[in-house]
């Protein structure tokens, strides 16, 4: 286990019924989505601070977002990265802290990823398209 406790070297590959190849792809997906999220979260934080300074009201928010195609594209990419990153992180947490290592964990994580992606896109549609 590295200092970050990610445990990728010591993960119980066979216990969850997941092949080593799938575990490797999950590791890559986690890092790739992290790199994309680094940029997205930075833009998000700057936007939040800017928006709060400009005043938060339904009208002020929707005036900036409605019909903003670039904003919707960015937000959709952000949601996709979240839907990949958060479930894989929670999977590691469930394995290491809860001892949940069987195949049902993978199903739970897959459903969570799909739900986050769907509800995230719905939220983006609401704000950018309406």
């Amino acid at each position: 286990m590295n200092s970050a406790g990610q445990g990728y070297a010591a993960s119980p590959v066979a216990a969850s019924g997941t092949s080593a190849k799938t575990e490797a792809w999950l590791w890559i997906a986690q890092r790739a989505s992290a790199a994309l999220l680094a940029l997205c979260v930075l833009v998000h934080l700057v936007t939040i601070i800017y928006a709060v300074r400009q005043g938060l009201s339904g009208a002020a928010i929707l005036e900036r977002t409605q019909g903003n195609a670039a904003g919707l594209a960015f937000y959709s990419l952000y949601v996709l990265a979240i839907a990949v990153h958060a479930p894989i992180g929670l999977r590691t947490l469930c394995q290491e802290w809860l001892g949940w290592r069987n195949a049902s964990l993978n199903w739970f994580i897959a459903v969570l990823a799909l739900a986050l992606f769907t509800f995230g896109l719905r939220a983006g549609w609401a704000v950018f398209v309406g």
Partner: peptide, 19 residues
């Protein structure tokens, strides 16, 4: 996250709901 997505989704019901 789910709460955040739910809150943003309220925009579907109009500006007043978001306010």
């Amino acid at each position: 996250l789910p709460f955040h997505f739910w809150a943003l989704g309220q925009a579907l019901q109009g500006e007043a709901r978001l306010d």
